[in-house]
């Protein structure tokens, strides 16, 4: 008996194949997120994060968001990720030079924003973590942040009333594992994409920049700010020394990880997206406003070990900028503020 001479069987076969196709479509649709949970914005490169091993789903995103705002991740239940990563400030700890953690303890670096992390190839100012999925364990276990042991968090969630059900929704069974926990948190963080600032709208031909902002943009390129803060992500993800006086905290940056002399004083080049709201600035938060940052580049760059060549082009280290030009660059930087992102209710706790 062959398919050819048995129309009934052919029918059954076709129905089954159609069924499989239908199911695979639904699954695929679910994985990529029909509501645009994660998509690559126009003009952005391919993400660094491998979304194939952890596709963002609605239930995974919701679980990740709940975890992000849950104090149970900390030793005494008081500190959640959201505590130091505040949405209104592009998920950073506004107003604090060093971020505060458990028992009011102070960390030794300024919390970084969580934005466009799908394109980030290393995490923390010194790049000590190289995979987003391995990132969240660090603040959880840091004695001055959440001061909890990661296995204890997993145990707490296993015993909780709410989480096993949510893990089932997101991953198919009630099992709470470190892999699922970290992947859910990653799904939430991956969704924090900012690509709709006034500058993006300007690029898309949907908005205009003022004359001052346009001058700032031109200077940003002309003066080589985009050497490091390059491309649509406004960072080249490298580690560089921008000539901050090291005595301030004694923090040697990337050297802490590689112990390589040539990495002394180097810190990760941060993105400039939403820079207006992520104050204070630098790894130690030494500058309270953008005026302070621009003054540093114009006038305050120190000839420290490994000072970046881009800041050694003039007889005086730094970037030659008049007060007026500094103001113009700041005006341009403020066009990188994405109010839709900062106010998006989908990302908020409530």
């Amino acid at each position: 008996m062959t398919i050819k001479n048995n129309p009934k069987r052919l029918g059954v076969c076709l129905t089954i194949s159609f069924g499989i196709w239908l199911v695979s479509c639904t699954l695929a649709g679910k994985e990529t997120g029909p509501s645009g949970l994660f998509s690559v914005p126009e003009g952005f490169p391919e993400p660094v994060y491998n979304l194939a091993v952890n596709p963002v789903t609605e239930d995974g995103f919701q679980l990740g968001k709940k975890l992000f705002f849950d104090g149970r991740l900390s030793r005494d239940g008081t500190i959640s990720c959201g505590e130091c990563h505040n949405q209104a400030h592009s998920f950073t700890h506004h107003g604090h030079g060093f971020s505060h953690g458990i028992d009011g303890k102070e960390g030794f670096r300024n919390a970084q924003p969580i934005v466009n992390v799908a394109w980030q190839n290393s995490f923390f100012w010194d790049g000590g973590v190289f995979n987003l999925d391995l990132f969240a364990i660090a603040p959880i276990e840091n004695p001055v942040e959440m001061d909890e042991k990661f296995p204890n968090v997993i145990e707490k969630l296993k015993k909780s009333e709410d989480y096993p059900k949510l893990f089932k929704k997101a991953f198919g069974t009630e099992e709470v594992t470190s892999e699922r926990f970290l992947k859910a948190l990653s799904q939430y963080m991956l969704s924090l994409v900012s690509a709709n600032s006034r500058y993006d709208q300007y690029l898309a031909g949907k908005a205009r920049l003022t004359e001052t902002e346009m001058k700032g943009l031109a200077l940003f390129k002309e003066k080589g700010c985009n050497t490091c803060h390059s491309g649509i992500l406004f960072t080249d993800h490298s580690f560089r020394s921008n000539g901050l006086a090291a005595e301030y905290t004694g923090d040697l940056g990337r050297f802490r990880i590689t112990e390589n002399e040539s990495d002394k004083n180097k810190f990760k080049v941060p993105t400039l997206r939403n820079i207006e709201v992520t104050y204070p600035y630098m790894h130690d938060g030494r500058f309270r406003n953008l005026e302070g940052v621009l003054e540093h580049y114009a006038d305050g760059v120190q000839e420290v070990d490994n000072l970046d060549p881009a800041l050694k082009k003039n007889p005086k280290p730094g970037i030659a900028l008049t007060k007026e030009q500094q103001g113009q660059i700041i005006a341009f930087l403020k066009t990188l503020t994405d109010t839709e992102f900062l106010n998006n209710k989908r990302f908020s706790k409530f």
Binding site: N131, N142, S178, F181, K183
Partner: peptide, 27 residues
Amino acid sequence: NTMGIGSRTGALDVGATAKGMYWVWNS
């Protein structure tokens, strides 16, 4: 040491057996 979280099970599970045997700040 460079593999994804999905390849860190059993003795290597940083959320269970490998408790205290992993540097979180310098993966």
